[in-house]
């Protein structure tokens, strides 16, 4: 998986796991995700309490991993998510090609440690057909694609990107490096 390669490239020690005890023993977690919402939820259902209650341990959701954090998604009917962030996930409509695939600009709406050294309007790589509509104030960056959708959300120690930082070249690596700094800093507190 690309995200583990990128994190290892940045010097992190990575375990790919679905084991709750391993996650509890980690300094920080990443929730990636490809495929369909419902299938992914089924696979992480047993981790619901751990992911929902990571407390001080940072979590980074990526792509579908961002969407899974929300209350529900309309992908494949109407499916409940982890409900860490209140809101729902809907499909792109209108004139745009779906999936939204390629490099698009990310506009910073609120400063977070993830954006250290990243210029406003930087390009990141996206592949997705659905986007989140938060019902609480979590949007840290937005991206235009027919609508202006949240491309980065942050709530306490939970961070999530709709794009793939592990596929976004130098800007993506910088964002992951920033996340690892968050992990290291939260550990020392």
């Amino acid at each position: 998986m690309s995200i583990s390669k990128a994190l290892e490239h940045l010097g992190a020690e990575v375990a790919v796991t679905a084991d709750g005890d391993v996650i509890k023993g980690s300094d920080g977690a990443v929730l990636p995700g490809v495929g369909a919402f419902y299938d992914a939820m089924r696979q992480i259902e047993h981790l619901r309490d751990i992911i929902g209650g990571l407390e001080d341990r940072p979590l980074l959701g990526i792509c579908l991993g961002l969407q899974l954090l929300f209350t529900e998604s309309e992908e494949g009917g109407r499916n409940p998510g982890l409900d860490v962030i209140r809101g729902r996930v809907v499909r792109f409509g209108g004139d745009v090609k779906v999936p939204h695939m390629g490099w698009n600009s990310v506009h910073i709406r609120r400063d977070t440690p993830l954006f250290k050294g990243i210029r406003d309007g930087s390009y990141f790589y996206f592949v997705h057909s659905y986007y989140a509509i938060p019902e609480e104030d979590v949007t840290a960056a937005t991206t235009p694609y027919g609508v202006e959708f949240p491309s980065v959300v942050v709530k306490d120690n939970v961070f999530a990107t709709q794009f793939h930082p592990e596929k976004s070249g130098a800007a993506g690596l910088q964002l992951l490096r920033n996340y690892l700094d968050v992990v290291v800093n939260s550990k020392s507190i």
Partner: peptide
């Protein structure tokens, strides 16, 4: 390549 080049 995938270990050091982080684009699609």
């Amino acid at each position: 390549t995938a270990q050091e080049v982080f684009i699609p």
